[in-house]
């Protein structure tokens, strides 16, 4: 095993990159859970859709356009889903909502196959993102730096909105006790809608960002679903802090597991998940209520 410090910096960046990608996905899912108390299993499908839309738009108008259009398109679909299914299911209990979104996974997977075919697709990034950046004397792919930066910006923006703005205060009130919040005159229904749509947009953004480094295939949503669920369950459902902690834990365990104990790499994260749930049955940062 090399002892070169640059090697460990590189691996740390790799871990951060994976963490930030997962953070973009899990934060929407966890805040939706915190407010509405249900897990949208189709969140991974929205991510896949984001990747497909980004690929199509990028082919027509360039990568930048793809990254902008994908979250908007997915958010629009999210709005439609909200009015057609989610809102109607609000009183049906969390289990029913989970199952509806589970059914949606299968529908979404076949719909992407009908539109985009079975063969995996790929897109390229603009030349300025294609190279490597010199980072403290270490070369690291520019695109991976972009993912890290984008994740950090999203994190900062969300923290700011949630802690410093009125909307954020309303959302926090809703997470703590939605009935009380409604009594205080907060339009809970509208808040649910906004949070759901923003969560969908973030999933679409994650898909667009991941598209150039992964194969865009109909089952990419299913493949990312389990890692995302692990992240939010380790962190504790419904909490922003939990999503950050969960993403970082997942990214670092996966990366350093692959480096230090490759033969255990695929079991390590599940063992950790089981251990967390035994010791803290509601995750590391559970929300109250």
């Amino acid at each position: 095993m090399p002892i070169d410090p640059g090697f460990w910096v590189l691996q740390t960046l790799n871990a951060l990159q994976l963490s930030m990608l997962l953070f973009l996905l899990s934060v929407g899912l966890t805040v939706i859970f915190g407010l509405m108390h249900f897990v949208n299993l189709a969140h991974g499908s929205l991510y896949a859709l984001g990747a497909y839309v980004a690929a199509t738009v990028a082919g027509l108008a360039g990568f930048g356009a793809g990254v902008v259009v994908a979250p908007l398109a997915v958010a629009t679909l999210g709005a439609a889903l909200y009015f057609l299914l989610i809102r109607r299911m609000r009183r049906a209990g969390p289990m029913a909502q989970v199952l509806v979104t589970f059914g949606l996974i299968f529908v979404a997977m076949d719909v992407t196959r009908m539109f985009w075919g079975d063969l995996p697709m790929g897109i390229s990034v603009p030349a300025w993102l294609n190279g490597q950046l010199d980072f403290l004397g270490i070369e690291y792919p520019a695109y991976r730096i972009l993912i890290i930066v984008l994740g950090l910006i999203t994190l900062a923006a969300l923290t700011l909105v949630l802690t410093r703005t009125q909307v954020g205060a309303m959302i926090r009130a809703g997470v703590d006790n939605d009935q009380m919040a409604a009594c205080l005159g907060i339009n809970v229904e509208r808040m649910f809608f906004i949070v759901f749509v923003v969560g969908c947009a973030l999933a679409g953004l994650a898909g667009a960002i991941a598209a150039p480094v992964l194969a865009i295939s109909p089952d990419m949503g299913l493949q990312i679903l389990i890692p995302t669920l692990i992240v939010i369950v380790i962190g504790g459902l419904g909490s922003l802090k939990g999503a950050i902690a969960g993403s970082l834990i997942f990214g670092f365990v996966q990366t350093f597991g692959a480096v230090l104990a490759p033969s255990l790499a695929s079991i390590l994260i599940y063992a950790l998940l089981a251990a967390v749930l035994v010791l803290r049955p509601a995750g590391l940062f559970p929300t109250k209520g």
Partner: peptide, 15 residues
Amino acid sequence: YTPFQKTQDFGPYIT
């Protein structure tokens, strides 16, 4: 050997 169809990020291996 990388976990089959569970590896999203090949970065650690490439490094």
